[in-house]
Structure formats: structure tokens, C-alpha cells
Nucleic acid binder design. Structure first.
Lengths: 338, 338
DNA sequence: CTTGGCACTCAAGCAATTTGAGTGCTAACG
DNA sequence: CGTTAGCACTCAAATTGCTTGAGTGCCAAG
């Protein structure tokens, strides 16, 4: 009972602080939320919450603001994530429909997410390793130059140049292409190393050089740095929290330009549900005063990649979680159509 | 003679202001640059320069800062662009070499440019219209679904889905593919509408449906929104000019997220040499207090696209022009190897 | 356990004052 | 005529002292 009210007080503090961005005092709380008790009682609760580390005072004569721990508790136990409205569903659907290719889907998604959450949005390209080969194409662009094109069932396309030391005949190329196609089409990318292990040996001696080069390039293209493509959008929203806040934007922008950081943010995500990392939990230098809300997208049990938003720790968590989840659902659907 | 010294004074003011970011006074000028005259004389020159609109005073008791017009004069008549050092050449070369595909080249270039200029960098993908068809591939991913892949000689790849209402046989597809390949390979993209005008008619009646769909999609992919891909990097540098300056970063970030704005910045560029647009000259809302330094890249007379940097009007123009030009040269070289 | 009362703290805002960098003007100089 | 020293003047920015009031913690009464 008493515990319950304390949580209510914390919720009220978080909600108020998120909207006003100013420390909230006991009086303001009593007025704005009908907690049914006087400011003095709220002060007692606040003292307890502060003792437990959920809220803090910037200075003696100020109100309280939630700590990272406070936000954590709020997210875990207090907030309820409402489903998005029909209007929002429609808006998302409309925004994402009519994409011409995967790049287009990614760009639209990141814009959409940035717009609805009013935060910085991140969208990772569908993982190659987790998808299957739709098609492989092998083209001679000159007698000694080949172009290998990989197409995944997500619509993702990778291409690599191959330089051959000896000229290649169309006949030989066609031979390799045919074998390759029948071996790998429809297979999952992560199985390719195994599948192609004996590919070269099984070829006629005269095409072995080609086969070897192609297999090497293909495996390289299918595994190397391949899940690293991430699109960012909405960075302008960072500037909104002008300088008033401990959120200095330079380190944040810097962190978001680091591939390693992005990979960490998008990679370490629970396979189901929405992941929220608050402040220090991001474990990234420069993002100490931001929170990251992410989720995976792609068919259940076979998630392709992650998407999410980055914002100040005093963000609207329920709203962000809601939007991230909804967008992930729609992207999943769109990608499956590709 | 007298005119000469005035220009020297302007140069000194620009150089000092660019490094210190503070209004410069007559005394400081006399000390730091050996102009051979006393502060009083410099004051007279400054009064004249102010009269002509090249410099201004933020307030009565402050030094002078260059106006946009002042920077203009500085860029046009005063600054000399030194060639880059051997070390820098090496660094650029090393940074760009070893790219695996076009996307990689673009990403590396934008990072490089942002790093050396310490500004926001913009790099536009090579224009399709200005390049030629290296290869076209047409693949059935199901009986009624085709995938069209366009490969330009710049290494750029575009792909589109085609939905057919009736099933397509491999035979018919192969027929269309063969005709298409022999018609368009090696041709410049902007000639395609003309070249393919009668393509469908010339086909056998039974493949006309396919031909029509393919031609329509191909022309669409080759012309529609196709030069709009621009990569941005180094936005963190914007935050460096903290809030101290009239350069509020939010409008700048917002502008840089607008496709239309980017196109305008990258599009309206002289075909040769480095273009500098200062302050208002950018003609973009939100970029009034920034300057844009751009140049085209790609073989002379057949430039493929633009690249450049965006920074505060009080930027190091000679340095930026130098770097932009040097990077453009190297990118041209790299792209030709692709 | 709750609440009104009250003394206490301290950031933030305001006004008054000082400081000094930088200017424009004038008169003298070569 | 261009240059320069001298000097009065201006005004942003920094410093200081003061006031205000939001918000607190604690205590005693309900």
C-alpha cells in the first residue's frame, strides 16, 4: 500500500520531468496528479525514494529528478505501453508502402522512426547471415574481370569485383555459374561455407581457377563486415535539447559516427521484445546521458536485424517503446514482400 | 598601394577571425601581422573596409569581423590555395584504397573528407545519367516475379522488382534478356529512353508483355530520383562551434536531412573548379550562417557528381578548397578503377 | 501514518558598478 | 597627403551584492 504510493510518486516524477524537463517539487506533484495526499506526505516518500537511489536533487532548494535507476524501475515496473492508435498505424503503413527497393525501405523507415519519436533513429540492414540466397549472378565485365552479385531474399544486394589472372571464356564462366546457382540458391547464407567447402574440387580442372576465386569472393562477401550497414536519421532532434541539459551533443554525434558503437548498440539486443538501455547501461562513451530503445525485426525466431532510437535519458519511454515496436512490425511485413 | 594594404588588412582580419573566432582589433592586428603600420593607420583602413561593407562591428567597443561580402572578396582575390603536402596525398590515397565496392568508396570518402576538413562532408553517388551501362541482368525469382539489375560502369548497382500478371518461361525471359543486353550494354544511361523506344515493338508478340514491363522498369530505375543518393559524415563537427556562435546547429542539421536541400547544394555547382557559396549565397533556409565548398568529381568533361563540405562562414576557406579538390581527384581515380 | 507549520538553504534573477578593449577624431609630423 | 600619437568616449562583459522564492527537512499535533 505504502509501497504502491511510492511507485506512483516515482511515476509522477518521471512523467512530469519528461514533459517539463525541470526538477519537480512536492507541491507541483500534489497539484498535477491526484495522489490523494498532501505535499508533506509526498516529501516523505520522496525522501525515501532518494534514499533508495531512484531520484536525486540537483541542489538543496530544487525539486527532484529521476536517476538512471529511477528510469529503470519506471520502465520495468511502472510504465504501461499502450498500443498505437489506428491513425498512427495508417500513417506508418502509408509512409512505408511504395518503396522501390531495400535501400528505399531502410531510408523511409529511419525517417519515419525519427519523425514519430522525435529522436535519433537507427535502422540496421537485414543481416545477410540470417537470410537466404535468392540468386547469385556471375558476369564477365571484361575477359579477366568478373562481377559477382549476391541477392538475398530480403532484397539485399551485394556485389564484388573479381580479377582473374587468365582470360575467362563465356563457356567456363557459364559452367561455374550453373553449378554455383544450383548449389546455393535458396540456402541460408550462414551455411555457405559448409556447402561450398568442396565446390572447387568437384569442378572440372579447367574451371577450377575460376571456381576458387568465385567461392573465395562469395564467402568473403557473405561474411565479412556484412552486417555493419546502419542508417541514421533525425540527428537534428538532438539539438532540440539545447545546451540547457547535461546532454552535450558533440560526444553523442561522435559516438553515432563510430561503426563499432553502432554495432554494439544494435547487436546486443534481446531476441524478443523491446530492449531499453538507460544512461550508463549503454556502455558507450559519449552516450552516458542518453538512452537507447531497440528491438529486432524480421519474422519471429528468425530476426533479421535491429532498429531503434537514441534519446536523452529523460525521454518518453512508453512512447518510444511503442513506436519502435510498431515500426519493427511494419518493416518486417514490408521486407517479407520484397 | 593603399588599396593593396587594405586587402592585406582584410586578409589579416579573416585569418585571425577564422583561428580565434573573436572580433579582431587594430592593436592585435598590428602585433600579429607585420603590416608595417601603426594601429591608428589600420583603424583608418578598417573604417574604409567597413564603409565598403567587407567587415562589421558586432558592437561599438568590439573589434571587427568579416561580413559575407568580406569572405567573398577574400576567397576571390586574396587567398591563395596551396597544394596539399605529400604526406596528405599519401594519407588520402591510403584511406581510399582497398574499397571493396562503390558503397564502400562513398563511405570512406565522406569520412576522409570530414576528417581532414573537420567539417560536415557531403558526397554524392556517381550519377547514373552520366555513366554507361556495364551490364543488365534479368532474373526470375518466381514464375511471375522478375528482378532487374542495372550495373553502371561506375560500379553502381540498381535493382527493381517486376511483378508480371502471367507466368514467365525461362525461354522467353532469356530472349528478352539477350536482346536487351545487346541493345544497351556500353550505352550511356541518358540515351536509354531513345534507344529503347522501339524495343517492345521489335520483340516477338509472345514476349511483348515482358519486354514492355522490363523497359518501363528499366527506364524508371535509370531516370527516377536516381541522382539523389548523398552520403553525409562528420556532423559531430557542427557541435564544436558550441553555442557561442550564431550558428545554431539545429536548423543546419535539419537542412542537411532534407533531400531537396542536399540536391540543391550538390547540383548547382560549376562544372569545373571549386565552388564556394558563402552564407546567404547558399540560398537555403537554415544555412544562412554556413558556407558550402563543393566541386565535381569524375573524368574531366564528364563529371559524375559532386562532393564537398559544409561549415560555418568563418571557416578556413583555402584549407577546405584544397582538401575538397584533392579528395575529388582521388575519388575520380578510384572510381575509374571500379 | 498524515499533515500543517516553520525555519533553512541556495540557485536564479536583478541592479549597480567596474573594467578594459577597441573605436573615432583631431592635431601634429614627415 | 598619408601616417601616427594622444585622448575622450562607448559599451559588452565581468564582478559584486542583494533579493526572491521554490523547495526542503523536521517537528509536533491530529
Amino acid at each position: 500500500m505504502l509501497e504502491d504510493r511510492r511507485l506512483e510518486v516515482l511515476r509522477a516524477i518521471v512523467e512530469d520531468y519528461v514533459t517539463t524537463h525541470e526538477p519537480v517539487g512536492s507541491k507541483a506533484l500534489a497539484e498535477r496528479h491526484n495522489l490523494g495526499v498532501s505535499p508533506a506526505t509526498i516529501r516523505n516518500d520522496m525522501a525515501a525514494l532518494e534514499e533508495e537511489g531512484f531520484i536525486a536533487q540537483p541542489h538543496t532548494s530544487a525539486g527532484r529528478i529521476p536517476t538512471d535507476l529511477g528510469y529503470r524501475l519506471f520502465v520495468d515496473r511502472i510504465s504501461d505501453v499502450k498500443p498505437i492508435s489506428l491513425g498512427e498505424r495508417r500513417a506508418i503503413e502509408q509512409f512505408l508502402s511504395g518503396s522501390v527497393d531495400l535501400d528505399d525501405v531502410m531510408v523511409r523507415t529511419v525517417r519515419l522512426l525519427a519523425q514519430v519519436t522525435r529522436q535519433v533513429a537507427l535502422v540496421q540492414y537485414p543481416s545477410l547471415t540470417r537470410s537466404s540466397v535468392r540468386h547469385v549472378e556471375l558476369i564477365a565485365t571484361s575477359t579477366t574481370r568478373l562481377l559477382l552479385i549476391l541477392i538475398a531474399d530480403t532484397g539485399r544486394v551485394e556485389q564484388r569485383q573479381i580479377e582473374m589472372s587468365a582470360p575467362v571464356t563465356e563457356q567456363n564462366l557459364s559452367d561455374v555459374r550453373g553449378r554455383l546457382l544450383s548449389d546455393v540458391t535458396g540456402k541460408q547464407f550462414f551455411l555457405l561455407p559448409e556447402i561450398l567447402e568442396r565446390f572447387t574440387e568437384k569442378c572440372d580442372p579447367e574451371v577450377r581457377a575460376i571456381a576458387a576465386a568465385v567461392v573465395a569472393t562469395l564467402l568473403d562477401a557473405a561474411t565479412e563486415h556484412v552486417d555493419e550497414r546502419i542508417v541514421i536519421g533525425g540527428t537534428a532532434h538532438l539539438a532540440r535539447y539545447g545546451e540547457a541539459f547535461p546532454l552535450a551533443i558533440q560526444p553523442v554525434l561522435e559516438a553515432l559516427e563510430e561503426q563499432v558503437v553502432l554495432m554494439r548498440l544494435m547487436g546486443e539486443v534481446a531476441t524478443s521484445g523491446v530492449t531499453v538501455r538507460i544512461g550508463q547501461e549503454t556502455a558507450v562513451e559519449g552516450l552516458e546521458s542518453t538512452s537507447v530503445v531497440t528491438t529486432r525485426y524480421g519474422r519471429q525466431g528468425q530476426e533479421l536485424a535491429s532498429l531503434g532510437v537514441v534519446g536523452p535519458t529523460h525521454m518518453d519511454y512508453p512512447g518510444a517503446m511503442r513506436s519502435v515496436q510498431a515500426v519493427a512490425q511494419y518493416v518486417t511485413r514490408i521486407i517479407e514482400e520484397q
